[in-house]
Amino acid sequence: MDPGHDRSGAARCPWSGDLDALAPWSETADLIPGARLLTFDGDGHGIFGGRSACVDMEVTTFLLHGDLPSEGAVC
């Protein structure tokens, strides 16, 4: 099994702002085997959809093609 995918074959790519108090993925991403965390260098919640062109590109690429961001990717 590819380490970036779960048993169903679905890739996992959580994304989070590094100062997002509502969803602190940076603390829990290591608990998801094979997942790649995409970090947004900023605050707030809801970073996909216009707040960052970098985040939008990485997430859209992941959703359309299943390509995970680079290890340690930061936007």
Rank of each mutant, 00 (worst) to 15 (best):
T28A: 15
D20Q: 07
S8Q: 07
G34H: 03
D41V: 14
S26A: 14
L63S: 09
L37V: 05
C13I: 05
R36K: 12
L22K: 12
L19M: 10
C13R: 00
E27T: 04
P69H: 06
G9S: 08
D56A: 08
T60V: 15
R12V: 14
P3N: 12
W15I: 12
G72F: 10
E71H: 11
L19K: 10
C54G: 02
D30Y: 13
C75Q: 02
A11G: 15
D43G: 15
R51S: 11
P14D: 09
L63F: 11
G46K: 03
L31W: 10
L64I: 10
D2I: 02
G9Q: 06
M1G: 15
T61W: 00
G49E: 09
V55D: 00
D56T: 05
H45E: 08
D20F: 05
A35E: 03
T60Q: 13
E58S: 13
G9C: 10
D30F: 13
G17I: 05
L19D: 12
R51C: 12
V59R: 01
G17F: 03
D2R: 06
M57N: 09
D56Q: 01
G17N: 03
D6M: 08
G4P: 01
P3I: 09
A35K: 00
W15F: 15
G66N: 04
P3V: 13
D18R: 07
A21F: 07
G4W: 00
A29T: 02
W25Q: 11
S16E: 02
D67P: 00
L22T: 11
H65R: 09
G49S: 13
E27G: 11
L22C: 09
T28Y: 13
T39D: 03
P69W: 04
D56M: 04
D20K: 04
A35W: 00
D18L: 10
D41M: 06
H65D: 07
C54K: 04
G46W: 03
A29D: 10
C75S: 09
L22D: 13
H65V: 01
M57T: 08
L19G: 13
A53G: 11
A53L: 08
T28C: 13
I47F: 06
D43P: 06
R12N: 06
G49A: 11
C75I: 12
P33D: 15
